[in-house]
Nucleic acid binder design. Sequence first.
RNA 1: GGGCCCGUAGCUCAGCGGCAGAGCAGUGGACUUUUAAUCCAUCGGCCGGAGGUUCGAAUCCUCCCGGGCCUACCA
Length: 546
Amino acid sequence: MNRTAPGARPATTGAAMPTEGELIANRLAKREQLLERGGGYPARTIGQDTCQEALSRFESSEAEPAAPGAGAEPRAAVSGRVTGQRVLGRAAFLDLRDGSGTLQLFLGRDALPGEQYALLELLDVGDFVEAEGALFRTRSGEVTLRVESWGILVKALRPLPEKWAGLTDPETRYRERHLDLVANERSREVARLAAATVSSVRRFFEERDFLEVATPVLQEQAGGAAARPFRTYHNALDRELSLRISTELHLKRLLVGGFDRVFEIGRVFRNEGLSHRHNPEFLLLESYEAYRDYEHVAGMVEALVRRVALDVRGTLTIPHGDVVVDLESAWARTTYREALSEHAGIQLTPSWALEGADGRQDAAVAGDGASRERDALAAVASERGVPIAPGASRASILDALMQRLVEPRLVQPTFVFDYPTELSPLAKAREGDPATVERFELFILGYEFANAYSELNDPVEQRARMEEQARKRSSGDEEVEVADEAFLHAVEAGMPPAGGLGMGLERLMMLMTGEHSIREVVLFPALRERERPGAAEPAAGADGGS
RNA sequence: GGGCCCGUAGCUCAGCGGCAGAGCAGUGGACUUUUAAUCCAUCGGCCGGAGGUUCGAAUCCUCCCGGGCCUACCA
């Protein structure tokens, strides 16, 4: 009973869409009829009021009745998507939703020109419409627009998710986020909270006279963090490039250039595994402030997170799963060394050796002593069930212990200060203590929220640290800081002392929304490519994906 | 990477060796204050894919694809 002759349509349609279902065919036919009647896809609409405006206009008119007899029924003209339809024969109710909310429309056949009511035959839930008329309250009390004129703006060719259960399959929700957003108020809410988080962070820095900058995403060499980059290629330059893994090195070059307060909220890309906490691209906040140290930054971070919580949630106590994160009480402060002692029972000397394991070894036999220290730590790690890579350095064993035994326990906001120098090639060493740097990380909910240093600005020391990292790299560790000549040149021109901060904003969004998966706060999270039905059967003997 | 679980109509789901099912949506009809409208009728399927077991497979087995949770890795 398809009223549209298939042959009348562009030739490609049928063949190109073999799975085109009856539902879509019906809607395409309605679209054709709509066009034949001269409707559909206008550039302008009569509906310039939002649903919210219409509702509040009606409510205020009820509060202050206009002069009697003035024909004072408030009017409205709205546009939006039809999310519900109840047809009762000679009358119909539609739910219309725009970005501000929803408004019910009433269409009575006798109140509309004949063809205007008949237009309902071409309407499906999901279509966009415009409508104009007077506002009233129905018997059941809902403010409703009595439509005097309306039109279909856009046909939805594909059906929307079912109205009651909505869209629940996580994969479909992520892959077809537009449908998720249409169907699920919670998804819209999370998206708004995520946006409010970024906006609040930006305002915080702007109010403190930080300059917001944008530094390059495409780089010859991705530096500033320890991570594998994505690689790409520039045709005109005939050059391999990497996508940035951090914004740190460029921002510091701006300090050299004389901007004392800079920040960037920038997408960075790390070529690592996917998980509920890791998306390969994420929003990284970095800020640098000259003439300040990491103590100052710690105070600033505390103010920042509290400010965001107040802006976004209006409170400093934030429920998240089974716990309530208390941002109001003084935030715990400990040191790397104390934290390992308290939570893992591991006592470390000032040079990060296991207490008692460095024994009688003197500087003269440092090599031997260092490897003994390393082995002693590795032994402790395996005692505690912390897996250690065979060639792991002493520092990376410490790091593994920290991650496994300490970090998960830091649920309430906790600053951990003073890290091993070996783990922090861009941070300044503590005075008289070259093995330890002025660095802190902030932990909330058991994972890293922020990472900050008193920035290393001695170019000679910086070069030595980077060369040390380069040695590790050449011995096989791919995820290690790389020496960046342009950056070193800049530091050699003189970089002011500064406190720097890095913070993954999705984690802040997760805290603010109460979500446990980064995929909920990222609008379009990375997913594997879905198998193409036609693309099956790899050629026999082909080597396939490695 | 390891463990557990999931994939059936556009959407939400049942069925778990014996004819492929329901609700919503769609289509046709009734209905002028409904709001998960209601009522009657009806259309809709490569049961994720490929092999295997069986007289018989959505159901059991193997592999593959995609996803979820946990765990590990990624400071």
